[in-house]
């Protein structure tokens, strides 16, 4: 039964992820006073690119051709590892450290693809992706500090019900959530870390690595990008969001939570400008520091 719910959740996230992405774009457009594209636009873009002919830059090897597939597969593995209904089937992977390493795998291959395109922009994108990644990993560990504090192992379980009962739990929850949102923006390549809508090569991070991709490779990369958007949000909600005893109800929560988050993200994005690239280490250190504050607050409560 749990397996069925898990698969239903995976399928739902897979199908709706371009829509969730589209919501953010629409909200952003409205807040900027534009009409903006339809929320279904991302489906059309992916479908259009899939139908096009595909070419690769000269001197590129099978790394460039394989990277979008690896990144999409890694994200699929991440999605599988998240117990979307709050409880994972027996023997099913549900490990947060594995999730971190899978995200690193995705970053590793996209960076390689950038270098393999043998141009300047691909290389820039690769360098930036890797550098930001070095800040994200320790910050992620700090953001989930409350999790290690509570049970000392790395299974993804809903923490909110346990946290509420702990002294200072609400404060710790606040810090953890705050830290997670900051890191989420970096991991997803949203403002203020990276601007997904930019068309200026010098400021691009993720777009630069896939600048040379077209056709089906681009479609796969875009699918991966939109999927990651939903996955990271779902990860946050599963761990820090509301939780009930009924798996179906938990899954139903996500149906509300994901669109709501993407609307809020659109609002956040409209409020910030992009940070200078060399200020990102500071941004990520602050995110890590906030996460550690959550850890400390919970630590003082003598669990």
């Amino acid at each position: 039964m749990l397996m069925l719910i898990q698969f239903a959740g995976i399928l739902a996230v897979l199908i709706t992820s371009p829509l969730i992405w589209g919501l953010t774009q629409t909200v952003k457009a409205r807040l900027q006073g534009r009409h903006g594209p339809s929320v279904w636009q991302m489906y059309r873009v992916i479908a259009k690119n899939w139908r096009k002919d595909t070419t690769a830059p000269e001197f590129s090897s099978w790394i460039f051709r394989l990277a979008p597939s690896v990144s999409l597969a890694a994200l699929l593995a991440v999605l599988t590892s998240i117990p979307l209904s709050g409880k994972s089937p027996a023997g099913w992977p549900h490990d947060i450290l594995t999730v971190f390493f899978l995200l690193a795998l995705e970053r590793f291959w996209m960076s390689l693809a950038g270098l393999d395109s043998s141009g300047t922009f691909g290389g820039l994108g690769a360098s930036r992706t890797s550098t930001i990644g070095t800040g994200i990993e320790p910050a992620m560990l700090a953001a989930f500090g409350v999790m290690w504090r509570l049970h000392g192992n790395s299974s993804i379980i809903p923490l909110a019900p346990i946290l509420i009962r702990a002294p200072n739990g609400a404060v710790a929850w606040g810090f953890a959530a705050c830290s997670f949102v900051m890191i989420m923006l970096a991991e997803l390549g949203r403002l203020p870390v990276d601007n997904p809508d930019t068309h200026l090569e010098l400021t691009m991070v993720h777009e630069a690595t896939i600048l040379e991709a077209n056709g089906r490779l681009l479609a796969l990369s875009q699918a991966a990008m939109t999927l990651k958007f939903s996955i990271i949000m779902a990860l946050g909600w599963t761990i820090l969001g509301p939780h009930t005893a009924s798996p179906w109800l938990n899954l139903a929560f996500l149906v509300v939570e994901l669109p709501a988050t993407s609307v809020i993200l659109g609002w956040i994005e409209s409020r910030f400008t992009k940070l200078r690239y060399f200020q990102l280490p500071t941004y990520l250190s602050i995110a890590a520091g906030v996460g550690m504050l959550g850890f400390i607050f919970l630590g003082g409560s003598n669990l």
């Binding site: 595909t54 000269e58 590129s60 051709r65 043998s118 040379e212 089906r216 490779l217 796969l220």
Partner: peptide, 11 residues
């Protein structure tokens, strides 16, 4: 995606 049949063009 037919990854192995992709042709190379100038970058």
């Amino acid at each position: 995606s037919g990854a192995w049949g992709i042709n190379s063009v100038r970058r």
